[in-house]
Design a binder for these strands. Structure first.
Lengths: 112, 112
DNA sequence: CGGTATCCTGGCTGATACTG
DNA sequence: CAGTATCAGCCAGGATACCG
């Protein structure tokens, strides 16, 4: 009763590695969490994530945008305004994160 | 219909980070995959994972053992024999990896 | 065989300054 | 405001040698 699903994993790990590489960055999950509650501007994200450098934030945002996890909307105003938000893919990713959270909570040793 | 599960993620990411840190190592998934098909010896793992250094293999194995993902069994023989295998926790982790694989396959851009 | 001890390197990240 | 450019530091991981 577990054979069907178990086979796949043993054959192909590449998409898993890619997914981990994508969400495994130091700040990536935090960024996704911040955007879970609605779209935010670059500077808002910076304030919400104490310690992140603009360079890192920019990089992570670009990666996530490239994979269509977050959407970037530019408002042609002065001063410039840019808003980032989760796409439906990003919402789907949250599902996976739930499972990760569940497993981690149930199986990881505490007390660090 | 999605509110209940989504809340948690926005409140606590620590176990997710820990889980990612645990399985995010360069070779960790491959090690788990190798052990999926049954217990293996240190040297067998080395052969199955071309390019891994004994130091790295040892480190990953220790981490996984520490979190009870893999079990280490020492046979007091000459020459020494040690076998590593997945524990039930490790099997449970495979479930999560399935979801990761599914999401990655469906949502990640191809062509690298 | 099954590791540990050392040394070393590349890439990610942080800090900071600067620009459109 | 929303980034990019530049430089420096840390650390996972690689190479290699050695040990019980």
């Amino acid at each position: 009763m577990k054979n069907d699903s178990e086979q796949k994993i043993e054959e192909c790990y590449c998409p898993i590695q890619k997914t981990l590489a994508l969400i495994g960055g130091k700040w990536t999950l935090s960024i996704i969490r911040e955007l879970s509650s609605g779209s935010k501007r670059f500077s808002q994200l910076q304030k919400s994530l104490p310690g992140i450098s603009p360079k890192t934030l920019s990089s992570r945002l670009q990666e996530l945008e490239k994979e269509a996890i977050v959407a970037k909307q530019v408002f042609p105003e002065v001063p410039p305004r840019v808003e980032y938000s989760l796409t439906s893919k990003g919402e789907g990713l949250k599902k996976v994160l739930q499972d990760l959270l569940k497993w981690g909570t149930e199986n990881l040793k505490e007390g660090y």
